[in-house]
Design a protein around this nucleic acid. Structure first.
Lengths: 353, 353
DNA sequence: GTGAAAGCGCTAACAC
DNA sequence: GTGTTAGCGCTTTCAC
């Protein structure tokens, strides 16, 4: 497409080595030579071919990013953070989405590696049981996980404490007077963090002496929220009054489904999500959630990866603080009232207060 | 990191050419040779170095994507569509965000070009006045614009008809009985499409015999919605009853600000956005909007770019259909009632109906 | 301070 | 069918 280093060298009457030295600031070049070369560069519109450079240096200043999906703001935000930091450090991103197809992880990472990315930032289905990560470890490829749950193998990870967060959610509900808790989660085998959240939630409920929460596993990718939620409320007498959803997008769908079931949020059912996506705060009722600092997580993961690339050997897990963010979707449990006065279900989302 | 083609050749007792032929399926290889080579490949875990290949073929099977930001779902969705189609065609994305800094476009594209992307998909601030695009045209770099407004220069674009859409919004409001329209737009110089929407909107209002809508230009990037919206309602008697926001994110912020001003939506002010981001439908009131098929736009743009790369010379603009999606945020104009009965402003979002 | 030349890993003629 | 070899555009010794 453009001029090569040889063209420039020729035009300036110098060798390619000199051009290279000038362009990269490596090695000294006499002033007037530099001027001559620079003129040629400008005139020819020379832009060094990164591919040629990469081949020769065996570095690309390129980072690979593999995440489940860009359509979930939580990942889009993380990528925005990754990108911001990468850009600031002179790195460029190559990007791949698994679309939650676990078996695709391997191939996507393979593609990125073929392009000789200097390192990877990824969210895998399960960090504790991951052929991809095993392969990366074996080949000693620098990577940092993001969102994934830390494991016994001490893989480098930037995440929040999902177990504690789950426990806090149980506490939060218990404090509000709820006694029958339940969780709606995306496919648990597809998300180690969802499992961690559940574990914390279940443990928290037990610690508070509540019945073990029912855990409903749903297909998050193409979700029929109505069908998914219905079973929980088939027997309305024993139905849960508080629902923990493993992520915000799921929580939003669930709230919609509850409405169509004639259940008000939070009048009949309290709902809390996880992630802290921006829109949650704009909903009515505003979405209670456990907020993760997604953008920051992306930033930190990038910083750690670049440090690793620079030779540092960093700590296995960076645990960033999460925030249980109350919202209108989670309210106190309804006071039990005399049976004959009870009005258990309303057909709009509003409670008679 | 891994084995080279030479290692494989040596291990299999063949030449590199044979390995190359087998790996790329170019040229015939005897069955037993193939087996031997394949064994070596598997044993050594050989993965062809794309950089080497790229240098030699002068193609990278890599597409560059430049958009304003990933944090706006409208762009995230488009990138998701681009990625899906690219992936299906064996292409990988390199990604850059301008963060709405117009002057960065040039450099970002430059970086992508240095990496020898085969083509670009981009959204620029203004397609009609863009040094970047001029440069791309001059160097004959294949690209397709997305979201940008088609211009006289017939640059390849995948978009919706923003002008018509704007006109439809004016009609929509007029049909609802609104007489005082206004628009809140992101920086107009930073968005050719916002200008087009405004033009259509203004023209539409005029066609319906309404007063020229006031157009408020706000800094979308770090927006103080309260301060931005206030001037419109300083004089509440002549204040607009219907607001067109140049995008959904802006509309959401504006609705929040209106609430804090004591103005109900849609009771006191009707609001419509633009983009059709998914969360709009989850808001209460649901967000009226002009929906663009973002994911599909990304897909189509990619298809067109790949066709161009394959040698086809495609049409300048592909205009995809938009959909004016009514929502609760846009309702009929309040019937004027006798002055002494009038209750113009309420301090919650709900009208006394 | 500058140049010559040997690669980096691969593909693609071109020979055989 | 298979091997030889000349690059692709760049960096980087090593001489001078």
């Amino acid at each position: 497409m453009g001029a090569t280093i040889r063209d420039v060298a020729q035009a300036a009457g110098v060798s390619v080595a000199t051009v290279s030295r000038l362009v990269n600031g490596t090695g000294r070049v006499r002033d007037d030579t530099a001027r001559r070369v620079q003129t040629a560069i400008d005139r020819l519109g020379f832009r060094p071919n990164a591919i040629g450079r990469n081949l020769s240096t065996a570095r690309t200043r390129t980072l690979g990013v593999v995440i489940p999906s860009l359509s979930n703001p939580v990942f889009a935000d993380a990528v925005a953070g990754i990108n911001a930091e990468a850009k600031a450090q002179g790195y460029t991103l190559m990007f791949m989405a698994t679309d939650y197809v676990r078996t695709d992880e391997q191939a996507l990472v393979g593609t990125l590696l073929a392009y000789q990315v200097d390192g990877l930032i990824l969210t895998v289905a399960d960090a504790a049981d991951s052929p991809v990560l095993d392969a990366l470890d074996r080949d000693d490829v620098p990577y940092v996980l993001i969102y994934n749950q830390p494991t016994a193998r001490n893989r480098p990870t930037v995440t929040v404490d999902n177990v504690t967060a789950g426990r806090e959610v149980a506490d939060f509900f218990a404090d509000l007077g709820h006694e029958r808790l339940a969780m709606v989660s995306g496919t648990l085998t597809a998300s180690d963090r969802a499992r961690a959240r559940r574990d914390g939630f279940v443990a928290g409920a037990e610690a508070r002496g509540l019945a073990a929460p029912r855990v409903l596993e749903v297909d998050f990718v193409d979700l029929d929220a109505d069908a998914a939620v219905a079973p929980l409320f088939a027997d309305r007498t024993g139905a849960p009054t508080a629902l923990f959803c493993s992520n915000d997008l799921l929580a939003i769908s669930v709230i919609g489904a509850l409405g169509r079931l004639g259940l008000g949020v939070p009048a009949d059912v309290s709902v809390i999500g996880f992630d802290g996506i921006a829109v949650g705060a704009q909903l009515h009722p505003t979405l209670a959630t456990v907020a993760q600092p997604s953008r920051e997580m992306g930033r930190v993961a990038t910083t750690r990866l670049l440090a690793r690339l620079a030779g540092e050997t960093a700590a296995p897990a960076t645990v960033l603080p999460h925030t249980l963010r109350p919202g209108e979707s989670a309210g106190p449990a309804a006071k039990p009232c005399p049976a004959d006065l009870q009005v258990p279900f309303h057909h709009n989302g509003r409670s008679p207060s």
